[in-house]
């Protein structure tokens, strides 16, 4: 089975096993959601000593991870995004980021992908609140190949990090050759009429939108940001200068996340017309992805419409 036929969470667990085989200091920390994260049973089966379950106690997991990191361990802590970000925000702030302890936090089932768990579990603000934290990197890989590259980078760098992890299967954007640098956005498609900026789960859709618009004669420059922080401003500014219009799309509240980062950069360095797509400052609900895309206006058809509107934009 090809890697892109696997669920993202299975690849997360499999890559952790690879990393543990190479470095016994890599640890897998879970808070009673290890099957949901894709690490159980494959990680405890292969590396029982490197697998630690905290029970339903996320705050303790994050601060304990800081203690482990202070001793040279490289703990990857996974739980749903709502718990990995907002529930443990002070633990991440003080034990991890302020204390500069090398903890890797993995928020699973981001945004609408929380699906049937509904509004209580649907976290739309993790990119925003984690991005506002000094000394924390924030990543959101878009497919299994990039996920593996991002995880390998995380294990090799001494950098407190938050990463979104979509649990299900995601369309392949890259192949085995993809590399990751937190300082670099990836230009997936060159274009001249409008810049489309995406991250994480939404990039697979953005690729399809850009292709279909090309057939209509709209030339989309597609920028994918696997790292929302640090944020590669130069690539964005160069593209915005060329196209004159920027559309952002993210599986998040439009406040403070990818769209926020884009507006901050452009507002200061290259004032440009921007349209942010995502969830317009509302909570989630139990619903299908299609329903939520349509309700909030950030599915493929909405992305295409926004790109058409800004194509050739007001320079």
């Amino acid at each position: 089975m090809a890697l892109h036929d696997q669920e993202m969470r299975f690849v997360y667990g499999a890559v952790l096993n690879e990393l543990m085989a190479e470095n016994p200091n890599v640890l897998c920390l879970e808070a009673d959601l290890s099957k949901a994260s894709g690490t159980n049973p494959q990680v405890p089966n292969a590396h029982a000593m490197n697998f630690v379950n905290f029970g339903v106690a996320e705050a303790n997991m994050i601060s304990t991870a800081a203690g482990l990191a202070a001793e040279g361990k490289i703990p990857f802590c996974a739980t749903f995004t709502c718990f990995a970000s907002r529930r443990v925000y002070d633990q991440v702030t003080i034990s991890v980021a302020y204390g500069n302890n090398n903890v890797k936090i993995v928020g699973t089932a981001p945004g609408v992908t929380a699906g049937p768990n509904g509004g209580t579990h649907m976290c739309f603000q993790d990119l925003a609140i984690m991005r506002a934290m000094p000394n924390l990197h924030v990543y959101s890989p878009c497919d299994v190949y990039e996920l593996r590259a991002v995880l390998r980078h995380m294990a090799a760098s001494r950098q407190p990090t938050y990463m979104q992890l979509v649990r299900g299967q995601v369309g392949a954007v890259f192949d085995e050759s993809v590399t990751f640098s937190p300082d670099r956005a990836i230009r997936l498609r060159e274009g001249t009429d409008v810049t489309l900026v995406s991250t994480g789960y939404m990039t697979q859709f953005a690729v399809g939108v850009a292709e279909s618009l090309a057939a209509e004669g709209v030339s989309v420059e597609l920028l994918h940001y696997p790292s929302v922080k640090p944020f590669d401003a130069a690539t964005l500014v160069a593209s915005a200068r060329k196209t004159g219009g920027v559309v952002t799309v993210e599986n998040q509240n439009i406040i403070g996340g990818l769209g926020g980062a884009v507006c901050e950069v452009l507002g200061e360095q290259c004032p440009t017309r921007v349209k942010r797509l995502g969830v317009p400052d509302q909570f989630g609900e139990v619903a299908s992805e299609t329903y939520l895309f349509d309700k909030h206006g950030f599915g493929p058809a909405h992305i295409a419409a926004a790109c058409r509107e800004l194509a050739g934009g007001a320079r």
């Binding site: 630690v52 705050a59 304990t64 991870a65 203690g67 482990l68 202070a70 001793e71 703990p75």
Partner: peptide, 8 residues
């Protein structure tokens, strides 16, 4: 919690 991690 931090001390527990160091002890572990």
């Amino acid at each position: 919690s931090c001390a527990s991690g160091m002890a572990l």
